[in-house]
Design a protein around this nucleic acid. Structure first.
Lengths: 141, 141
DNA sequence: CAATTGATGTAATAACATTACATTTGAACA
DNA sequence: TGTTCAAATGTAATGTTATTACATCAATTG
């Protein structure tokens, strides 16, 4: 992984955007973030996208490709993976289409299988997306 | 899977859109499809999106979430999976960011691991996206 | 042939993202 | 201290992707 192993100091805009995502209980789109930060002086999409880019680079948030939306990383200070901060490998997401809840997980065996496929084809992976959309336990009825 | 086991008759618009995707050597966006079909009478995005929706429903094309673009299914009449038409389970994609080539594959073990995770959490999957972006063998140098 | 269903045509708008350019900030260091 | 440089910021304009709303047409079927 390329993400820094320690959390870097955030700029004001980055902090504001990260706070929005941290407080949110579901993925948030860039334009929704913009709306929520109007009172803090945000006026243009680019202010949001720039912060999102940096936070992604830092490994502090994830983009959900199938939603065009963003979530705070759930594993930042978790005890998983040895408690050293970020998990290694590809993160997978289970996204509830009813309540919006997102579970972040990772599976070594899945990673391994995908890596093997890539190795076998001489394909060099840069970024892998795994997103399961469906209904979470609470919403299945 | 919910896709029909035999290929349904396509309407004119569906055929035109499917042909564009079949001929393309890389994923194509909806608006690019629109441009390529102007000469055939296409005038509005909705004509494309409606055809794309149906073709997706038929399992004849795939949407690549990380690109906002579409490809023809590579396995429609392939000998894989018993030669009976569609593969079952989730299809994964390896997308070359240099040449645009897309490889479609499928891995039972990956499916199984993701299903197990879902079962363990009471999560009911509706659609799973797996996309590996990187460089194909030809482009890696 | 009436009724229904699915497909189509068209316009308008919404939602998501980037380019271009000007300005400001802050740390490094001569 | 003041210069310089890189990063961050502000703003406007534009580009790209997707949907809503509404009218019409075509094929099927009862």
């Amino acid at each position: 992984m390329n993400a820094p192993t320690i959390t870097p100091a955030l700029t004001k805009n980055q902090s504001l955007v990260f706070d929005v995502l941290t407080r949110a209980e579901a993925p948030v789109s860039a334009y929704t973030i913009l709306d929520r930060l109007r009172d803090h002086g945000f006026r243009a999409p680019l202010q949001v996208y720039r912060a999102l880019d940096k936070l992604t680079e830092f490994g502090m948030i994830h983009r959900l490709e199938s939603l065009n939306a963003f979530v705070a990383c759930a594993h930042l200070q978790s005890e998983c993976c040895g408690g050293t901060g970020h998990c290694h490998g590809t993160v997978a997401f289970a996204i509830c289409e009813s309540c919006g809840n997102v579970s972040e997980f990772h599976d070594d065996e899945v990673d391994h299988r995908l890596e093997d496929w890539a190795k076998g084809r001489g394909f060099k992976p840069a970024k892998t997306t795994i997103e399961i959309r469906g209904l979470c336990q609470n919403c299945v009825v």
